[in-house]
C-alpha cells in the first residue's frame, strides 16, 4: 500500500500546484467566472484518452469501465454537482485542501463519511429501486460504434484530440468574454498554442 500512498502523493501535489483543490476554482467554474478546472479536466481527458487507448492497443493495460445505469447515474450526478457547489470541493480534492490548511474541507470530509454511512444503510433499497434503474452494460463511445483494434485506437485518439481542442476553445472564449484584457495578458501568458 506504500506504492498507492506515493502515487496519491504525486496526485495531491499536482492538484495543489494547479490550485484544482480550491473552493474559489470550483465555485468560479460553475459561476462561469474561472474555467481553470474545466480546462484542466478537458486536457486530462483528451491527453489521457490518447495515452490509454494507445496503451490498451498495445496490450499494456485493460480498461475499467463503470456500469451504465442512465437513471441512477443522472440522479447521482445532479446531486453530486449540487453538493460540489455547496461544499466547494470534490471528494478527491478535499484531502489536498486540508493539506494546504483549509479546515472547512475537513468538515466536508466528516460529513462525506457520514453520507457514506447513510448510503451504506440505504444501498439495498436503492440498488433495486427505480431510482437506480436498469443497467445497460458498461460501454465506451468506441463500443457504441462497434469498433475494435486499429479503428478503436484511431477513434479514441481522434476524440481525445477533440477534447484538447475544446479546452483551447474554452480558454479562448474565457479570455474574450470573462477576463478583462489586461488580466488576460498577465494570466497564463506562457501557455503553448
Amino acid at each position: 500500500m506504500i506504492k498507492v500512498f506515493i502515487l496519491g502523493a504525486i496526485f495531491g501535489a499536482i492538484m495543489q500546484l494547479g490550485f484544482l483543490d480550491r473552493l474559489s476554482k470550483v465555485i468560479g467554474a460553475f459561476l462561469l467566472k474561472d474555467l481553470t478546472i474545466p480546462k484542466a479536466l478537458m486536457i486530462a481527458m483528451g491527453v489521457g484518452a490518447v495515452f490509454l487507448y494507445s496503451a490498451e492497443y498495445f496490450g499494456l493495460i485493460q480498461f475499467h469501465i463503470k456500469p451504465f445505469y442512465p437513471v441512477g447515474v443522472a440522479l447521482g450526478g445532479l446531486i453530486f454537482g449540487i453538493g460540489m457547489v455547496i461544499v466547494g470541493y470534490c471528494p478527491g480534492s478535499m484531502p489536498e485542501a486540508v493539506g494546504e490548511g483549509r479546515m472547512d474541507a475537513l468538515l466536508g470530509i466528516i460529513s462525506g463519511v457520514i453520507g457514506g454511512i447513510i448510503f451504506t444503510i440505504y444501498y439495498p433499497v436503492y440498488h433495486s429501486s427505480f431510482l437506480h434503474g436498469n443497467t445497460i452494460g458498461a460501454p465506451t463511445l468506441t463500443d457504441l460504434f462497434g469498433l475494435e483494434g486499429l479503428a478503436k485506437l484511431l477513434t479514441g485518439i481522434a476524440i481525445g484530440m477533440t477534447f484538447v481542442l475544446l479546452a483551447f476553445l474554452i480558454d479562448r472564449l474565457e479570455r474574450k468574454y470573462i477576463l478583462k484584457e489586461e488580466e488576460a495578458e498577465s494570466l497564463d501568458g506562457h501557455v503553448p498554442g
Binding site: 443522472a74 447521482g76 450526478g77 449540487i82 448510503f119
Partner: peptide
C-alpha cells in the same frame, strides 16, 4: 450539507 450531498450523489452514480 454539501459534503453529505457530494458523497451521497457520487455513490448513487458509482
Amino acid at each position: 450539507f454539501g459534503g453529505f450531498l457530494l458523497i451521497f450523489g457520487a455513490r448513487m452514480a458509482g
